[in-house]
Amino acid sequence: MDPAATDPRLPQAEPSATPADDRPVSVLAPVIAAPLGPAEAAPPRTGMLPRGRPGDGLRLLPLSGFHWGGPVRGRKTPPSPRVRGDHVLIRPVAGAVSVEFPRQAHVLTAGRIAFIPAGTAFSLKPPPDVQGQTLLIPPAWVGAQPLPKAFRSGWPASEDAAILDPAILALAEGAARDPGGNGATPYQLGLIAVALSRLEERQGHADPRSDSLAGARPLTERFLALAGCDMAANRTIAEMARALGCSLAQLDRACRQSRGRSALELLYDLRLQLATEALRGSTRSIPEIAEELGYAGLGHFMRAFLAATGRTPEGYRALMRGEPPAQEG
């Protein structure tokens, strides 16, 4: 299910004439609309989205045409999450879209922005009336830019709202002209990286949960640090709670307050994160990784990883290394 340049559910527009420089453009959506965030909205601009050819690497697509995921499990259910090999930046400007992760969904409304790093399992089936853009960034283009290593979502800070959309558009225009990138690419990616590092959870308002989070966050971080020290020990949540000087109920409540997930769910997420890092950054065998991370056995690891990412550990390792995909059953 590679992302389509058009939404097949919508009437197809007549293709426009090819510009003089033979650079293909999208005929579907206007150029990025005025930033929707804490800053005062600027007048919208009109024009065409630059559209890269297949294989160009970095591409900017209409959000309504970006569909991703594995097999569809039912008429009313979204596709199953599946790993992508590129970074995905999602910017809705009208309507809303739900990003489906293995054990939770994240609703993205107009004005917010989301970044999904390469190697993250997710699915997306946007409604036909949603408006916005999806930027696909090959990891090879990123270089030393400090893009987030995990999913991020929020409102652009007031000082970033006015520069974020022009940076995205300029980056895509440069990629359409030069699929290999150009000299301005690091600068534009740097602007995007800074904006992502300063995303705000709520538009212009302090988080009303900040007081309750003051004690929940440190406990949750201590729990995750303890769990990550020796995953092979396979300690129970109750054992770790006692080691942290709290009850199981207190630990679980802190995890839900600070991360929106139970302690057990966070432990599963941490184990999956460590597995993906080991597959990407080491040559250790897959059975060895499964044992180090406390899985009950190789079969347990294979089933859990496939359910969470849509790929086997071997397939994920090959994807992240840019190797030819192996045939997966």
Rank of each mutant, 00 (worst) to 15 (best):
R235A: 14
T220K: 01
M48V: 15
I237E: 10
L244S: 02
S26I: 01
E291G: 11
P166E: 13
R209C: 05
G228A: 12
P78E: 12
G52N: 09
A150S: 15
L306E: 10
G281A: 13
M1R: 03
L272W: 04
S282F: 03
R91W: 07
P148K: 10
A233W: 08
L219R: 02
S212Y: 15
E277G: 13
G228W: 07
G57K: 01
L108K: 00
G95R: 02
A20S: 10
A4E: 14
P19W: 10
L191H: 08
G65D: 03
G180D: 13
D230T: 12
L124T: 12
P313Q: 10
Q145G: 03
R198V: 00
A278I: 03
R59V: 05
V83K: 00
C246H: 09
A290M: 03
L60Q: 02
A176G: 09
G143E: 06
D56L: 03
R284P: 07
L169P: 06
R9S: 15
A13N: 08
E200A: 09
A304W: 06
E277S: 13
R259V: 06
A249D: 14
V142K: 02
R209Y: 14
L135Y: 00
A176T: 12
C255L: 08
Q327F: 14
L63C: 01
H67N: 11
A172D: 06
A193H: 10
R311W: 08
P146N: 08
Y268A: 12
R321C: 08
A238P: 01
R222F: 00
P138S: 09
Y316H: 11
V88S: 02
D252P: 12
S258A: 15
L267R: 01
I116N: 02
G74N: 07
E239M: 08
F101G: 05
A304Q: 12
E292W: 07
A176W: 02
A233Q: 15
A175L: 07
P117M: 05
A308F: 04
T312V: 06
C229V: 13
G65N: 11
V27S: 12
A214H: 13
P35F: 02
R209M: 13
R73A: 14
L213K: 15
P50A: 11
L60G: 03
A4I: 00
P19F: 00
P186F: 06
R284S: 04
R91L: 11
G228R: 05
T46W: 10
P3E: 05
V107Y: 00
T134L: 07
E221P: 05
P139L: 04
P43K: 09
S158N: 07
A42G: 11
G111Y: 03
